[in-house]
Design a protein around this nucleic acid. Structure first.
Lengths: 338, 338
DNA sequence: CTGAAAGCGCTAACAC
DNA sequence: GTGTTAGCGCTTTCAG
């Protein structure tokens, strides 16, 4: 580190023998600058290693070209794939990202987060935290106090609020319909933690698909997404019930289920068929390779940025956008466990 | 969205019947304000929902209280766990994070990235991209042009440059020593892509540990980290060589190796012992549960923030820090594949 | 203890 | 085409 710490527009102007205004015109690609002047200024900019300050520009224009992103649970792969989509799309739109991570999923301390984001004058906010328990309770009172548009990811749609989510209900139905087609009738569910909206949706999909087929959704045990909880749940399930298929709410629990079933001498898929949800990179190499529901979390992230940028632009034009809810359809990936 | 879009310090001052300086003193917790005035101003701030603008403050103080983070490969779990450590520690130090993701690991287009970061006047940069091929070539010429301190993660230590990394060489040696203790003598390596510094370090650890035991490191096949490449490599390895143990450069490839070996009728660990590297959440539930090397990527992230903040403070005091290199030791986790 | 004036780096609005 | 003036929201002098 050394380099030219603080070259300002004035330095460039002085060296080029023009006013700061002219330099400003050059860096903003305005048309009304003489070709020759433009080149000269550009050369000086290059030579001095000058970078216009977004702070100053943001101050004056009332916009920082920055989006706030609030996430949680980065130690798991899901949120970070969404983030991957967000970074990619934000760059395409010329926005920088201010990242905040909640200390835990159900943190209700959103005020300091918002304050930090708003202090930095973000132009909009992406709330990429899954809906769990009442961690959206703050919407009631505090949403109206936020002076910039917010788009929510992975949340139960609410009227008047922008949101995007994977359609977990539809995904679960796909899995069950696939198992039904394979001839299974006694299909259990290894559910996710029911405080999670996503887990409830997957359970509901399991129920609805079975009922539509004239069957009763009865056998259901709950885990907490982890492989270790899945192991406990799988033991309970296989010890106490006779089923010929299980739909697991995620791949990690499905993994334990495979392990437990095979330890008990069951052959997969002959004695027990298994379908998961998520499609982890490893799922194709489980023993045996896992049939699962693929959710495109990258798309979830990138589309949310798209939407937020649209909204910002609409407000910019003085109009008010019509709130939209978008659901992204997952896909069935058939492998060897069914 | 509505809320008080743009409440300024002036609005607060006017309503409180004081000057803007006084308000400024209150929000910065300066001592020289009368108790009564302070309370009154605070009440108005609350009432108006005023948030001081970090843009204006940054402009004047020459610092934005923002750290730039450059990452790559967020769709994999590794980088995002590091990011997890970064967000957590940055918040503890009161820094916001400006996130940039490279389009690919070996992107050499670092100039636009730097420019965006510097435009936003970040106080320092965390370069959290693994060293691959010559994607650090730019250090030669351009590092000196960066006017803020940079800390590099996951990179071959270089004199005079701040860096932190997991000690992959030591980790690999731990794995091999464990296999040797278990009585294995013919230990192959399922290597990672050799353009990656980390993969080379793991291979070197395998070589060194074997040589120190008086054995020759001979059998080695290379994958690209993915389970599918691991499958190809495992087939090649098991078809052409007779080995009684394999050290895989990561868990995903180890997973395929387990699958391939068992398909060929080998029992794990009796016919073949396997050790991996990474310790994924799923690894404890592989079939069988995988012995592996655990690397603490959260700590890698959090310590890098710590270091960067230290450096910024040292410069702040007008001093120049002594460049430091830190290696974080991984840990052996013994499970059922050895 | 409090306020007035100046200015951070930049751009909008107007002159010329 | 180009320069001048003013001011974004805040903090830093320096007076009182």
């Amino acid at each position: 580190m050394n380099g030219n710490s603080k070259v300002t527009i004035k330095d460039v102007a002085r060296q080029a023998g023009v006013s700061t205004q002219t330099v400003s015109r050059v860096i903003n690609d305005r048309p009304d600058v003489a070709m020759e002047t433009r080149e000269r200024v550009k050369a000086i900019i290059q030579k001095l290693g000058y970078h216009p300050s977004m702070l100053a520009r943001g101050l004056i224009q009332g916009r920082s070209c920055t989006l706030g992103v609030v996430t949680a649970g980065l130690k798991y792969i899901g949120p970070s794939r969404t983030l991957n989509g967000i970074t990619s799309e934000a760059e395409a739109h010329g926005y920088a990202l201010l990242l905040e991570e909640l200390p835990h999923y159900t943190s209700t301390e959103i005020k300091p987060i918002m304050e930090r984001l708003l202090s930095h004058r973000v132009d909009g906010i992406l709330w990429a935290v899954p809906e769990i328990g009442d961690n959206r309770a703050w919407l009631e009172g505090q949403l109206s106090e936020v002076p910039v548009p917010i788009v929510f990811l992975t949340m139960q749609p609410r009227p008047g609020i922008e949101s995007l989510a994977i359609d977990n209900h539809a995904g679960a139905k796909m899995a069950i319909q696939h198992l039904l087609e394979k001839g299974h009738r006694s299909i259990a569910h290894l559910a996710g933690p029911q405080e999670w909206w996503e887990a409830r949706e997957r359970l509901r999909g399991w129920q609805d698909a079975l009922r539509e087929a004239g069957l009763d959704p009865i056998v259901c045990v709950e885990g907490n997404w982890s492989s270790s909880s899945g192991e406990q749940a799988a033991l309970k399930l296989l010890e106490n019930h006779h089923v010929d298929a299980v739909f697991s709410a995620n791949d990690q629990m499905a993994l334990s289920l495979l392990l437990v079933a095979q330890r008990r001498g069951m052959r997969i898929p002959n004695d027990l068929a298994v379908a998961g949800f998520d499609d982890l990179a490893e799922s194709a190499y489980f023993y045996p390779p896992l049939t699962t529901i693929h959710q495109d979390q990258f798309a979830l992230g990138s589309r949310s940025v798209n939407r937020l940028v649209d909204i910002i632009n609409i407000y910019q034009e003085g109009k008010v956008p019509e709130p939209m809810v978008e659901m992204i359809l997952p896909e069935l990936v058939v492998r060897s466990t069914t």
